[in-house]
């Protein structure tokens, strides 16, 4: 179910970024969003939304049982 929803989002996002989705829905100058034309704001919006969806997908996944197993062999280098 989680994977299905995620796949659906990826398809939707791709459709919104290329023809014809982008041309139909996002490709216009007005309204301006924070001074930026809608055509640019549309693409930025999808980048931001992808970040949010990825974050949700990530935190709802099973906690990685490998996190400890991979990390315990060597001390961390940078923090």
């Amino acid at each position: 179910m989680r994977n299905l929803l995620f796949t659906a989002y990826v398809v939707l996002c791709l459709a919104a970024l290329i023809w014809p989705g982008y041309d139909w829905l996002g490709n216009r100058i007005e309204p301006y969003v924070l001074g930026v034309p809608f055509s640019l704001a549309w693409v930025v919006g999808w980048v931001v939304l992808t970040f949010v969806v990825l974050l949700i997908y990530h935190v709802t996944g099973a906690p990685s049982h490998e996190a400890g197993r991979f990390g315990d062999s060597v001390a961390s280098e940078e923090d």
Binding site: F51, L54, L55, H58, S64, E66, A67, F70, G71, V74
Partner: peptide, 11 residues
Amino acid sequence: RDVATIRRTVV
């Protein structure tokens, strides 16, 4: 370092 690091980087 681990699998979780890769996933977080992508996110």
